[in-house]
Design a protein around this nucleic acid. Structure first.
Lengths: 236, 236
DNA sequence: CGGCGGTTTGAAATCTGTCAAGCGGGGTGG
DNA sequence: CCACCCCGCTTGACAGATTTCAAACCGCCG
C-alpha cells in the first residue's frame, strides 16, 4: 500500500507526499505535477487566509512553511499547527464551510489550488492527509500540556523531521526548516529566550546539531526514547 | 438554519445537538431518538476504545463525559479533548481508519452506535459535528500554549458551558460537569493542587460560583473579555 | 558605515510544581 | 447505628522551571 519512498524522491514534495497517502493513477499524478505552473507566492509574514472567512477552494503548499495561528489582543500569538510543503490547506467536505483559524506564511510560501477531488485516488489522499493532520494536532496538544521545554522541543523536532522525510525533504537524520527561534517559541508556548537556552542544552547533550536552519539528530534513539516517540501510523 | 433551541429542550442531548447542526427529517430524528434503546454503558475510569485500533463503527454519547487521552510512561496523562453528551466519536470517512487516540470514560458514560449516514441530513450533521470538534481543538491548543492557569480555566469553563448549552444541558449561566479537579488539571496541563487554588481565586474575584459539580458564571462578561472569548461559529 | 532582524547572555521576578499533612463526606461492613 | 476507610478536596512551605527585562552581539543588506 505504501510505495517505496525512493520512487518519488525526484518529484516535488507535494507529489511525493500525496503519492504515499493513496494509490494515484498516472493521470492524477499528472494533475498534481501540472500544478507547478499555476501558483501563488505569499511572502513571509504575510497572511494567507483569514479566520472565519468562507472557504472557496482548498490549496496545497508547494514550498515554504505556513501555520495556523491565533493572535491575542496583547500581542501574544500561538502557532496552532505548522503547515509544510505537500500539506493540504482548507480542504473541506461541505459547502458553506468557514476557515477555523487564520493562516500565515512563516517563510515565502508557494501555493497552488487543490485539484478537485473528482477521482477516487485524490479523494482518498485528501482524506488521509486530513487524518494525519489531526494526528499531529493531538500530539501537539500532549506536547503543550505535559512536556517541559526540553521535551517539547525534542518532540517537535522529531515530528518535523518525520513530516519532512515523508515529503522527501530530509536526508537521513538531517533536515532544514525556515523557522526562527521566535517561531519555534510561538509553536511550543515558550519564549524565544528559552528556546535559545534549550537548544544550547540539546547541543551540550550531543542530541542535536544545528547550522542555521539545518538540524541534524546526533542521537535519535535517545531523543525518541526521552519523549516516548512513536511514528504516526499511516492508515488505510 | 439554526432552529430555536427551545424547540429541543425536552429532547435527549444528542438529539438536541444534531438537530442544531443540520436540518433533519422527522425520520432521521426518529432514528436518533430510537437509539436510546440500544445502548452500552461504560463505567467511570474504564477505557472505551484504544489508540491505534481499527475503527469499526462510530458512536454517539448519550450521557456522561469521556475524553481522548494520552498516557505517558511516567504516569503523567494529558486529556486531549473532552467528549460531552451529544458528541460524535469515531465517525470517519474511509474504511481502514485507525483511532488516533485512546478514549476513556471520565464519568459513567452511555453510548449508542452511530446511525449510518445514509441520508443527507445526518451526513451533514456528522460533518458539522466534526468541524466543531476541530474548532474546539484549535482553541484548546491556544489555551495550553499561551494562557496562564487562571485564563486556561476560565476559557475552558466558557467552552464547556457553550457546549453544554448547545446540547440543551445548561440553564442560563449554570451548568454541571462530572469532572474532578484532577481531571480538569489533566485537561489544562496543570496539577490538581493548582486547579484548586485557581478555582479559589476565581471565587474570590466573584467570577464563578461552584457547588459540587455545578458551576455558575457570576460575571460572564468580564470572564469572556479576559480571554477574548468568541463563540465558535456554526457554519453551514 | 549604519541599521535591522535574529541570536545570545545575565540577573531577578513570577508562576507552577512538589511534597506532605490534614480535612470532609459518602459508602461499607460490623 | 457507628466506626472506618477511601477518595477527593484543601492548605502550607519550599523548590524549580520559565518569563521578563535589558543589554550586547552578529551577520547581512542597503
Amino acid at each position: 500500500m505504501i510505495p517505496d519512498p525512493r520512487h518519488y524522491d525526484d518529484q516535488p514534495p507535494h507529489v511525493t507526499r500525496l503519492c504515499k497517502l493513496a494509490p494515484l493513477t498516472p493521470d492524477e499524478i499528472r494533475q498534481l505535477t501540472d500544478l507547478c505552473g499555476l501558483t501563488r507566492i505569499v511572502p513571509a509574514r504575510r497572511e494567507i487566509a483569514h479566520d472565519r472567512e468562507p472557504v472557496r477552494q482548498g490549496s496545497i503548499i508547494l514550498s515554504g512553511f505556513a501555520a495556523r495561528v491565533r493572535h491575542f489582543r496583547d500581542g501574544r500569538r500561538q502557532i496552532l499547527h505548522l503547515l509544510l510543503p505537500g500539506d493540504v490547506v482548507d480542504w473541506c467536505q461541505w459547502a458553506g464551510a468557514v476557515r477555523p483559524t487564520t493562516i500565515t506564511a512563516l517563510s515565502d510560501v508557494k501555493l497552488a489550488l487543490l485539484p478537485h477531488a473528482g477521482t477516487a485516488g485524490l479523494e482518498q489522499a485528501y482524506v488521509q492527509s486530513n487524518a494525519l493532520e489531526q494526528g499531529y494536532m493531538f500530539r501537539h496538544l500532549a506536547r503543550l500540556g505535559r512536556f517541559d521545554a526540553y521535551e517539547r522541543l525534542a518532540d517537535l523536532l522529531l515530528d518535523l523531521h518525520a513530516r519532512m522525510a515523508f515529503a522527501g525533504l530530509a536526508e537521513g537524520d538531517s533536515f532544514s526548516i525556515p523557522l526562527t527561534q521566535e517561531m519555534l517559541a510561538d509553536t511550543l508556548g515558550l519564549t524565544g529566550v528559552h528556546i535559545n537556552r534549550t537548544l544550547q542544552a540539546m547541543r551540550k547533550d550531543a542530541m542535536v546539531e544545528r547550522r542555521g536552519n539545518a538540524f541534524r539528530f546526533l542521537d535519535g534513539r535517545r531523543l525518541r526514547s526521552m519523549v516516548d516517540y512513536q511514528p504516526l501510523a499511516i492508515t488505510g
